[in-house]
Design a binder for these strands. Structure first.
Lengths: 237, 237
DNA sequence: CGGCTTATTGACATACGTCAACTATTGTGG
DNA sequence: CCACAATAGTTGACGTATGTCAATAAGCCG
């Protein structure tokens, strides 16, 4: 077994892995290994060829995608999540790169082995399918928000997505640096700063240290056009 | 059998169905049926509960998503494609609505039956997984393009995505009306019109009838920042 | 305490949406 | 078959959101 005690512990927090049948999990992790990586480390580059399926045991990973010189963050994966790019399943080039934005421990699973199990075991395929479906949900929301909302509204929604509260006040903790958050939300750090400044006028205070207090969740929801019914928080299983 | 001769013929063009094992396909279509629907017909609404898995045998379907009063088009499904929302798999509310933007024939498969087969048959799960992975690829690209490119560049990329040529000249046919295309590309019809006007200055001519001639594909690629290596056309099987 | 990075703010440019006018196109009924 | 209305597309004028560049302020670390 190539995986230490501590990492085994961390694996328990990985939804996708714990949903897997025991047999599949054993096969999958048989020649997997774990690497401790610092902030800034690259897991893979856009356009590259998938060698591993990466599991984020701890730390945070940005999925980045660029055109020419510009680059943006498509999504962020954190502890307990699996980095499932289309490349992992299809064998196509990576549609985005992956870089640690917070140091952590990453489990590397041989992609060939993963694909073998996927093809053989319906349960594994189903679990993976669900993960992809969820990713789809998130991406769909991003596309819609980018098309229909202003920077201020996108920030508001991001804050709302980090609390379960639908009324009253709330406190959320932003774990990312401003430039990172700005890239995720599709704006410049300057615009993000201004968006925060604007939200201050509706009772949102960003303390130092990433803590943000929201005076009235409902007010934020109204502002972000999300106060109507539609969309409850999804997350299938 | 509830499905006529003509429709059986159309089913042959559906990639996902023809990748399915015979047994699974038989089960799936056993109590499925086909509806001829006019332009403007709604297949389902955002927030609703999935009852069918829809297959586009002919015509075109827009996947729409709205916040408050505004609405945009997330993607378009055409003949031979399956409308695989996360809702179909997860049982969550639909993340978007679906509306015909061109009349056609739609096959309706009982979603319960689909899920049963998915859980039991690894091959079906794998095929579905691939479809989702492909959808992911497209959505990722949309997110990136919306964040990094101008309206003109997005239009340029859309045109490029409709031709296999990577140099020389090309002719593509736009099958959608301008407002539809504008919504898909995340801009207003006016901006789309101006984008076309701009591209005219680099040798792109949009005739009446949806035919667009591109004088120099390479020039368009350069303009859309896509001239570098990265991204070849993916489409994993 | 003094560089160093990081966040904020200001001034400005620009891309894009909005509103409105105009044109072209398609369909309809006399 | 033509006049007409209705619709889609284009173009112009203008406002606003947001990116850009620069300056300042505020943490951070040696």
């Amino acid at each position: 077994m190539l995986i230490g005690q501590k990492d085994q512990q961390l694996m328990l927090n990985v939804q996708l892995l714990s949903d897997l049948p025991d047999k599949a999990l054993a096969l999958l992790t048989q020649d997997a290994f774990v690497q401790g990586l610092p902030k800034g480390a690259t897991l893979f580059d856009q356009g590259g060829h998938a060698q591993f399926l990466h599991v984020v045991l701890s730390g945070r990973v940005a999925l980045t995608s660029g055109i020419g010189d510009c680059e943006t963050i498509i999504n962020i994966r954190e502890s307990g999540e699996v980095i499932l790019d289309a490349a992992t399943v299809l064998g196509t080039p990576y549609s985005n790169g992956a870089r640690l934005i917070e140091g952590g421990r990453i489990m590397m699973i041989q992609v060939g082995k993963f694909r073998d199990i996927l093809a053989a075991d319906a349960a594994t395929a189903t679990v993976t399918l669900r993960a992809f479906a969820n990713a789809n949900l998130t991406l769909t929301r991003y596309v819609r928000d980018l098309k229909l909302l202003t920077t201020i509204q996108r920030l508001a929604r991001h804050l709302l997505s980090m609390t379960a509260a639908t009324s009253g006040s709330a406190t959320v903790t932003l774990r990312d640096e401003r430039p990172t958050l700005a890239a995720l939300l599709g704006m410049t750090p300057e615009s993000l700063s201004r968006a925060f400044a604007h939200l201050r006028t509706v009772g949102v205070r960003a303390d130092k240290g990433g803590t943000v207090s929201v005076e009235s969740v409902r007010r934020l929801r109204r502002l972000s056009k999300l106060d109507d019914r539609s969309e409850g928080e999804p997350r299938g299983r």
